[in-house]
Amino acid sequence: MKFFSGIGERLREGLKRSQEYLSTGLSTVLEADRPIDESLWEELEELLISADLGAAMAADFVNRGREEVMYGTVTRAEQLRPVLRRFLLDTLGAARPLKLDARPSVILMLGVNGSGKTTTAAKLAAGLKAEGRRVILAAADTFRAAAIEQLETWGQRIDVEVVRQAAGSDPAAVVFDALKSAMARGADVLVIDTAGRLHTKSNLMDELAKLKRVIERQVPGAPHEALMVLDAPTGQNGFAQAKMFHETIGLTGVALTKLDGTAKGGIVVRIVRELGLPVTLVGVGEKVDDLQAFDPARFVDALVPAS
């Protein structure tokens, strides 16, 4: 149960750079003997903004901090650290494992272009397979050149069957096929890779809604997971993405990829808070086992170390 038994060292490793950055910043901002003044609040706010938490969230936290100071619960700068941690932890809520009880459990991967859907779908399939589940992948990105070949290459690499049709065919037909085949073979999980689409393109969003209807009709209760894949460098637009995808087909969570760079992925905090969508998976590298279950505590540890 390595895959879902919590987060591995890799998240820490991947987040180390973010951690270094934010925590170096934090230790100078929150030096023990530093007076709590306007410039401290300003720097703290900018530090949070630099992690892509957004201007509003950052201002919100600063206001909380100010209140604590006003009530006298915080008197020294360093005491703001646990306050910041608590704020982030409260916002992120508890970890939520993927729903994999149904048979087959259908997991729909979606998101804007280039966020890492295909790679994440393949890594997820590999992780589930390593746990002993029977997994099938569906190549429902029939639009982008060689997207099907990309998933097929992955399928061979991780030894997972990929249901596909010709390029340019109807993604709904691919999904239909894949569902039939998953049921016929008694697969435990079907992971569906869809074409990247910008959330502002209504025709492509309609296509996604149609995919969902096809799934619902074939497997009652499915899709059990509809995960939006979001890459960590994404800024405030990530919120608009999540909101539109959620309104269109009802997301169950977010998979945060590319956390191995210097980007902090702070936009997920806003997505969790304002849309109530949990982060379920994080990608911290290019290797097959670099996809991990999301653990809020570790995520916050990596962003704001306890000391």
Partner: peptide, 12 residues
Amino acid sequence: VDAMTGQDAVTV
């Protein structure tokens, strides 16, 4: 550069 990139664009 992806137009949706956030604060990290400077580092990249």
